[in-house]
Amino acid sequence: MSGDHQDPRDQSEPMLRVTSLSTVFPSPAGTVAAVDGVSFSLSAGQTLGIVGESGSGKSLTLYSIMGLQPDTARVEGSILFEGRELLGLRDRDLNRLRGQRIALVFQDPMTALNPYLTIERQLSEVLQYHRGVSRSEARAGALEALRRVHIPEPERQLDRYPHQLSGGMRQRVVIAMAMIGGPALLLADEPTTALDVTIQAEILDLLAEQRDGGTAILLVTHDLGVVARLCDRVIVMYAGRVLEEGDTGQVFGRPLHPYTEALLAAVPRLDEDAPPAGRAIEGQPPDPLALPDGCAFWPRCSRVMPACRRDRPDLVVRSDGRAVACHAVAPDPLASEDRP
């Protein structure tokens, strides 16, 4: 706690602090918040998972951090990265961070790579543009980046085109491309969804290696298994809002929110004390243009109460560091013993 800094908060300030992030689209019936007041923070070497069904706003949260939301969207709130506000930054300044300090791994390696350019070109342009290195230095850098993601015969892959590589190889290239600038923060959007199960495991190991190297990872996925393997903390999103947040072990071991419970129950499990078959959550995710009053989840909730249909529950932080937004969850038993 005692340091050279005058303000002790400086030292505890995380690498990324997202506060009340909202991504809003115009629509004929007023604006629609596809991401609605999301807050979280992430420190160096940490891994945070965001889970939710499709349409929950989890990917858009990721893109909004990088300023890659669709042109029609407006982003509000605050995104502090290494103490710097990203919202409102000009493209030119944002480009100094993109690919260098913050990098992105996309869901589908098939389409994330440019089919008309060689692997070398797509890797080395990051170094050439940001660092101004020569063509041959950039090639050496690209080669090194491919080695770091354990691509066999990296020299040969450099001159090939994406369509000549397998899906798993392509995803390694995408990760190599993200890591080549040595980013402090890696954002990953469903990095394993488009891959075979065996290759999924390899890619997860590769991401774990990057984390162990000190890179913070923000991972978006609908696959709870991926989160369980890789993430220290997890956020559960529904209809653009955070319903639950906490340490992965706690959240998955003892979920507080009925939605988290339902998500976990829907996962097919191999261990024996669990139900024999996973069951899907009943009902459909809500239409963002016609969200119900109160809690967005109540029409599908097993523990719905009158208040749920009326008031939207706030995300309440509990003494154990967990947070949940639900009327049905008992008030924090330790609240009285703790500071607010």
Binding site: D91, L94, G99, Y129, A178
Partner: peptide
């Protein structure tokens, strides 16, 4: 609108490039 254009933007490349 191709996803690889978003990749290029995520790499911090300028619009012209």
């Amino acid at each position: 609108q191709m996803p690889y254009i978003r990749t290029a933007r995520a790499k911090g490349l300028p619009r012209r490039l």
